[in-house]
Design a protein around this nucleic acid. Structure first.
Lengths: 204, 204
DNA sequence: GGCGCGATATGACATCTGTCATCCCCGACC
DNA sequence: GGTCGGGGATGACAGATGTCATATCGCGCC
C-alpha cells in the first residue's frame, strides 16, 4: 500500500478553504499539508513541503490560480495540478490546460469529485468535465488581440474614452478603434456587452 | 445538557455546500440535517425538518438568501437565521438585518466563526462583523428609488435605452431621466459606473 | 387645501460612442 | 522584395447617451 497523498490547498476565502480542507480530511488516504490564501504564496509552500497535488482556485489575490499553475508546472514538473473554480468559463479551461493543469473542476460539481480527482491525477489521469470541454472546443479560441483585451479590461469599470486614452497612453481615436473591433469580433453592440461576453467566455 | 443543534444549509455551489457541511459535521454539538441548493427550496425544507438554525448564502438561484430569510422570519419566527456571503457589501448587511437575520458572516472570515455564530444565535446573540457594521452605517442608506434600482438593474447587461424602454414599458426619455438621476445620486459619470458602484455597495 | 415627492413624459441641446475609410510603421513569413 | 497582420493615428459622420427645463398625475402629510 502507498502512503497518504499530500495536498496543497490554495483558495482565498478562508471559510471555503478550511471547509474544503475538512472535506478532504475525511478521506483516509488524503492529507492537506498546506493552505495558502494568495496565488503568490503557492510556489514557496509547494517547495517547502514536498506536496503531491496542488489544488488551486482561480480567483485569488497576488496571482491567479492559472498563473500559479504555470509557475508550478515549470518549477516542479512532477507536482500534479488541480484547478478548482466557481466559473466554468471555456477560456479558463483552455488557459488552465495550457498552463499544465491535470484537472479542472467547477465548484458546483458534487463534492465527491474532488477527492476522486485528486486520486486520478496522481494516477496519471486527466479530469475534465466533458460538457465544459465541449463548450471550450465549440466556443473556439479567444479572437481578441492582446491590446484589445487590455483595452476591454481597462474599459470594464466604466471609464470613458478620454480616461482610457490617458491611462493607456493612446489617442482617443485609437481607443475607439480597438473597442470597435472588439465589439465586432464579439458580435455585440456596445462596450458594456463586449465586456460582459468576453468575461463570460473567460477571454478577459 | 442540550440536544444537538439542527442546521439547514442553503448554498448553490455543491462543492462549497458539502464542504461546509463537513466542517460543521466536525462539531460534536452541531448536525446538518438538510442541504438545499436553491433559495426557493429553503422554506419547505425548514418546515419539513424542525430546524434550529438556517445558514443562508445570498447569491442563489430561485430566491436570494435575503429573500429566503425574510420568508423564514415571517413563517417560522423561532428559527435563527445566519447569512453567509462572499461579498461584504454594506447594503447586503442592511437588508439582511431588515429581513430578520441574526448573524451576518463573510466567507473570508476564519472558519471557526461559523460554528461559533451558530451557537451564539441560538443563545439569542447577534453576530455581525464590526468593520462591516461600521461601513454599513457610514455608507448610509440606499439613495435610489425602487424604479431607479429596477432600471439600473435592467441596464446592467449593456442594454440600450431603446431596449430598456420596450422591456420596461417606458418611453426612451423616461429611461434616460431615471438613469440620469441615478448617475447623479451615485456621483458618477455614466451608467456603467453607476451599475458598478451600486453593485459594490449592495444597492442593486 | 397646499406641499413635496416619485413616476412618467416631452423636447432641445451638448457630448460621447461606434463606424468607416485611410494612412504610417514594423516585424514575420514566403 | 512583397504581402500581411498588428499597433497606432486622423477625420468625418450617425446614432446613442446624459442633462435640463418643464409638465401632469397621484399619494401621503401637516
Amino acid at each position: 500500500m502507498s502512503r497518504t497523498i499530500k495536498v496543497l490547498l490554495a483558495e482565498d476565502q478562508s471559510m471555503v478553504r478550511e471547509a474544503l480542507a475538512a472535506l478532504l480530511g475525511l478521506e483516509p488516504d488524503i492529507e492537506v499539508v498546506a493552505q495558502v490564501a494568495r496565488g503568490d504564496e503557492v510556489l514557496a509552500a509547494a517547495r517547502a513541503l514536498d506536496v503531491d497535488v496542488a489544488l488551486l482556485d482561480i480567483e485569488m489575490p497576488g496571482r491567479t490560480g492559472i498563473e500559479a499553475a504555470a509557475e508550478l508546472h515549470k518549477e516542479l514538473p512532477r507536482l500534479k495540478l488541480v484547478i478548482l473554480t466557481t466559473f466554468g468559463r471555456p477560456g479558463y479551461l483552455r488557459s488552465a490546460m495550457e498552463a499544465g493543469a491535470d484537472a479542472f473542476l467547477v465548484k458546483d460539481a458534487p463534492a465527491a469529485q474532488l477527492a476522486e480527482a485528486v486520486r486520478k491525477v496522481l494516477a496519471g489521469e486527466r479530469v475534465i468535465d466533458p460538457t465544459l470541454a465541449a463548450a471550450a472546443l465549440a466556443g473556439g479560441a479567444n479572437p481578441l488581440t492582446d491590446r484589445e483585451r487590455e483595452i476591454l479590461r481597462a474599459a470594464a469599470d466604466g471609464s470613458t474614452n478620454a480616461e482610457l486614452a490617458t491611462t493607456l497612453h493612446l489617442s482617443q481615436g485609437t481607443v475607439r478603434n480597438y473597442l470597435s473591433t472588439a465589439i465586432q469580433k464579439l458580435a455585440v453592440r456596445n462596450r458594456a456587452e463586449a465586456v460582459r461576453t468576453a468575461r463570460e467566455k473567460g477571454w478577459l
